[in-house]
Amino acid sequence: MTGTADVLVIGGGIAGVSAAARIAPDARVTVLEHEGAIGVHATGRSAAIFIANYGNATLRSLNAVSGPELEAPDFLDDTVLSPRGEMVVATEAELPDLERHLAEGTGVERLTPDEAVALVPVLRRELIHGAAIERDARDIDVDRLLQGFARLLRRHGGRIVTGAGAGRIERADGVWRVATAAGAFEAPVLVNAAGAWADTVAGLAGATPVGLVPMRRSAAILPAPPGHAVDRWPLFVSASESWYAKPEAGKLMVSPADEDPVEPHDAWPDDMVLAEGLDRFERMTTVEVTRVERSWAGLRSFVADRTPVVGFAPDADGFFWLAGQGGYGVQTSPALSRLAADLVLGRVPALPADVVAALHPGRPGLAA
């Protein structure tokens, strides 16, 4: 028996589920997820913070649209954001990076080294030569956001099928047919929201890949430094992005901010990469890392210009790209899901035309 829909979405992360939720009021939608639950990979392993100044100019435009929606989602009874702040700290060698951050950002305030250490007392004052803070950066409750989108999808009659990884993809008579372990599914439109596997899905469908590169990002949970209550600390990051740390349920999450190109897979941390990152963190703080309580890794997938790919493929009828979100997928999901719905349903996008063009899969330099 074949499941039919108007739109099939491959991928049950925040990108696929949010887009499906926004399409569902006007079309029959089915989400196909390889794993046994949604949000298993990059979504479930996100550092989960909204930073308005994160990413290039196109991404900042998406952030500006997404921020108010995360503050008051129309499908939830309360915000998914909570206060955090992001503080950038610089050694003497990193001062050019700090100045660039201040010049490019909005709502970013310069701090003295003493002010930075007052906010995060474990920083080594003698190594801090400059700092800046975006006070409005906020934590995101990712699971609440993802499950809210899933409920919205189901409320409008949409389906999520787990254990349904795409094995074969074919197009005939204007319809995409996807064979999975959970059965076959058909629809005129196929949305490729497969995260790190998006180029693999494109290959199965006969569409030209966009040169997606999955990159591993590792993290570890450390006990809170003795004598310190960390909950009110901001996320703090080196100006050269060689490490960052963030309070997490009374402990510290520390990442080496690695971006190592890898094949798409269920990611795990490289012990040496993690150890080197923890050493960089140790050298900038008074924290002695004696115990790692837990570690993990996720894949952040980028194309060459580090901008998401959103729109119908120029070489495959009915094949829609929603990929390449890198480390920005959760915080840009409100804007990108509405854009995806507008384009799939043939509506004029609410986003400015230059932003839509910057995201299009037919833009120069993407085809592999």
Rank of each mutant, 00 (worst) to 15 (best):
T2L: 14
D6P: 05
V7R: 02
V7F: 01
A15G: 01
A15Q: 14
A24Y: 03
A24D: 09
P25W: 10
A27Y: 06
R28Y: 05
V31M: 03
L32D: 00
I38M: 09
N53Q: 09
N53Y: 04
G55S: 03
T58Y: 06
S66Q: 07
G67L: 14
P68V: 08
L70T: 02
D77K: 11
V89A: 11
V89K: 04
R100S: 14
H101D: 12
H101V: 13
E104R: 15
V108M: 13
R110P: 07
R110N: 05
L111A: 12
T112W: 05
P113G: 12
E115W: 09
E115H: 10
A118D: 15
R125F: 11
E126W: 04
L127M: 12
H129C: 10
R135G: 08
R144F: 05
R155D: 15
T162N: 14
G163I: 04
R171A: 06
R171I: 00
G174P: 11
G174V: 10
W176F: 12
W176E: 05
V178G: 00
A179Y: 03
G183H: 13
E186C: 02
E186W: 00
V189K: 03
L190C: 00
N192W: 01
A193G: 11
W197K: 13
D199G: 10
A207V: 11
V213R: 09
M215H: 11
L222H: 05
L222E: 02
L222I: 09
P223S: 05
P223G: 02
P225G: 02
P226E: 07
P226M: 08
P226D: 05
G227Y: 00
L235N: 08
A245R: 11
V254R: 04
P256N: 12
E259H: 11
D260W: 08
P269Y: 06
D271Y: 06
D271M: 05
M272F: 09
A275N: 07
D279P: 01
R280A: 14
V287I: 04
E288L: 10
R291G: 05
A297Y: 00
S301E: 03
F302K: 04
V303Y: 08
V303G: 10
T307N: 10
V310W: 06
D315A: 12
G327V: 08
G327S: 15
Y328R: 08
G329I: 05
S333Q: 07
P334Y: 13
L336Y: 11
L336N: 02
R338F: 02
L343A: 04
L343K: 10
R347G: 13
D354G: 06
V355D: 08
A357T: 13
A358P: 10
P361F: 02
P364F: 01
A367Q: 15
